[in-house]
């Protein structure tokens, strides 16, 4: 049985959230990490390569960051965010990027089954939530994305650097002001909290992949990296670098 570290860092500010994920990606680690977290206050995140001008919502949100991972913009409210950080040759991520998504999304779908949410990869289906002009992650989809009720409910993206991987994902509990088109967990399981979803995700990773988690807090080096780098992720220079 493999041991992973589980971090729960709920209600973190946007820049700190991204700084901590960068620490998980860049700092040496003995074990893979699954981090489950929420954002307080809510914020919009841009994908690494997105042009700021291509995301009209950016002008309307009070807070925004740019992620290290690719993909579209996400409004982080009414959701659980996860990040997975591990070596690129880990069996869960070995081989084509596409296959690693299938493995992780199958695990998330298993967790959602526990709430009666029938999540499955989009495949060739057209989605009612697709509106690609606004640059929002949940309004654009590919065949690997997890959907239910003809809407996208999980958005995720990876960063591969220095032999390590950071896999980010957002699982929507319900629509929010700037993510209005998403598939909603609460429409199937009213009252679901991020904490309940976090427990189900942990259980799914344990069952599907034989992982044993040790629940910990971020280490001192990770925390100081997150503090130090938080302003970078919210800075105009980084937000508007493209």
């Amino acid at each position: 049985m493999e041991t992973w570290r589980l971090l729960r860092t709920f209600d973190g500010p946007a820049g700190w959230n991204m700084g901590l994920d960068e620490a998980l990606l860049l700092l040496p680690a003995e074990r893979p990490t699954l981090r489950l977290y929420t954002w307080d206050p809510p914020a919009l995140s841009l994908g690494y390569f997105q042009r700021a001008a291509d995301v009209p919502a950016l002008a309307r949100v009070p807070r925004a960051v740019r992620r290290l991972t690719g993909g579209g913009a996400i409004h982080h409210a009414e959701e659980l965010t996860f990040s997975i950080a591990l070596p690129a040759d880990h069996p869960l991520y070995a081989g084509p990027v596409r296959e690693s998504y299938l493995r992780i999304h199958a695990t998330i779908a298993r967790a959602l089954e526990g709430l009666g949410v029938p999540a499955s990869p989009r495949g060739d289906r057209p989605l009612a939530s697709d509106r690609p002009s606004g640059g929002m992650c949940f309004e654009d989809s590919c065949e690997l994305d997890l959907v239910w009720g003809d809407r996208k409910g999980v958005g995720s993206a990876q960063r591969r650097t220095g032999g390590r991987i950071l896999h980010h994902g957002s699982i929507k509990l319900s629509p929010s002001e700037f993510d209005t088109q998403v598939a909603s967990i609460r429409s199937r399981a009213p009252g679901t909290t991020p904490e309940q979803l976090a427990d189900l995700l942990r259980l799914a990773f344990e069952k599907e992949h034989g992982i044993e988690f040790t629940e910990e807090s971020p280490g001192p080096e990770e925390l100081s990296h997150a503090e130090e780098r938080a302003p970078h992720f919210t800075s105009d220079a980084f937000l508007r670098r493209r």
């Binding site: 690494y48 390569f49 290290l68 991972t69 690719g70 993909g71 990027v97 596409r98 998504y101 590919c142 690997l144 995720s156 993206a157 990876q158 960063r159 591969r160 650097t161 220095g162």
Partner: peptide
């Protein structure tokens, strides 16, 4: 994203980034 001519690189250094639909890689 590729570098500008004139940039000095060390062996192993990241010179650019490439994004596919689902991953950004150095």
């Amino acid at each position: 994203d590729l570098p500008e001519p004139g940039r000095v690189l060390e062996a192993g250094e990241t010179f650019g980034e490439i994004e596919s639909v689902k991953a950004v890689a150095d």
